[in-house]
Write a protein that binds this DNA or RNA. Structure first.
Lengths: 153, 153
DNA sequence: GTTCGTGCAAAGACTTTGCATTACT
DNA sequence: AGTAATGCAAAGTCTTTGCACGAAC
């Protein structure tokens, strides 16, 4: 009956698309759904396409790009650059307090949804006379799985 | 005598290249010098190439890429992604407290060389068990030149 | 003199675009 | 039914690579 719990945010996106007078095609629905499922994987367009094709082999890569473009313009998706030459995508949280921790050893991307930068923004506004609208913070390091437990010392 | 003040950091880089047993070619010297001159422009490889060619029209784009690659591997250059599809380059400061302010109106890239994130790193280390090695902070907003002066209020 | 670096052009990777066909409203 | 979206393939960017020639040590 009526949708699993994880369908909530995808339903919101479908509704937003209806509101925007763009067509709610099967491809778009599928792409949004997969994107919601891989939320933590930060897939590239190509990776997303590969997963989408497992469910509908007829979806073209161009459609994936076009859909991601559309979603990004509507602020429903945001991009992430990890420095490997391809753009990675994730559903936008709405919050701008959304940071990434990139493990240099296993490549895992963790997220921190927390306002860590309020004070920093204030500093920048005063220091440089720069009004901050948005920010992007990436931290490179070693995640807890890769860090050998050094309880001693 | 013996070198203008702005030559200091380029001399350091030349010396580093000698120490690394790579050949100090005219092309490499030129590219380093131009890079030092455009320090604040954050040129892409192509933009850098265009400037380099004004001084030596025979330098190829591939050499620019290869030199930037080399310098990056030696931590003498670092890259910056502004989201326009090309990689931008700048001489590394040595400091990791080096952040970028991107003006959404004029596109200018300002820099903040200041340790703004010490406390944030500590928080992340405790919160996520993530040992931070490096970080990259970009702030998007409106710079002081583009912001209408609102002294009142 | 040897080795490494360069220039050129070709290839590669990612992304965008044109156009006939299909599917949504 | 009308219009927007799709799939495919071609084109467009940015970047890397192979190879013969030239420059640095």
């Amino acid at each position: 009956m009526g949708g699993a719990p994880e369908d909530r945010s995808t339903e919101e996106i479908y509704q937003r698309l209806r509101d925007e007078d763009v067509k709610l095609t099967n491809q778009r629905r599928l792409i949004v759904r997969i994107l919601a499922q891989c939320q933590d994987d930060h897939p590239s367009a190509d990776e997303l396409h590969r997963i989408v094709r497992e469910e509908d082999p007829d979806v073209g890569l161009a459609t994936v790009y076009r859909t991601l473009d559309l979603l990004e313009r509507l602020d429903l998706v945001q991009t992430l650059d990890v420095g490997d030459g391809r753009t990675r995508y994730e559903l936008a949280t709405g919050l701008h307090q959304h940071h990434h921790l990139l493990c240099l050893q296993c490549g895992k991307i963790e997220e921190v949804d927390q306002d860590l930068l309020g004070a920093v923004e204030d500093t920048v506004e005063k220091l440089a006379g720069f009004r901050v609208v948005d920010h992007e913070l990436k931290m490179f390091g070693v995640c807890c799985d890769c860090e050998p437990e050094e309880q001693n010392g």
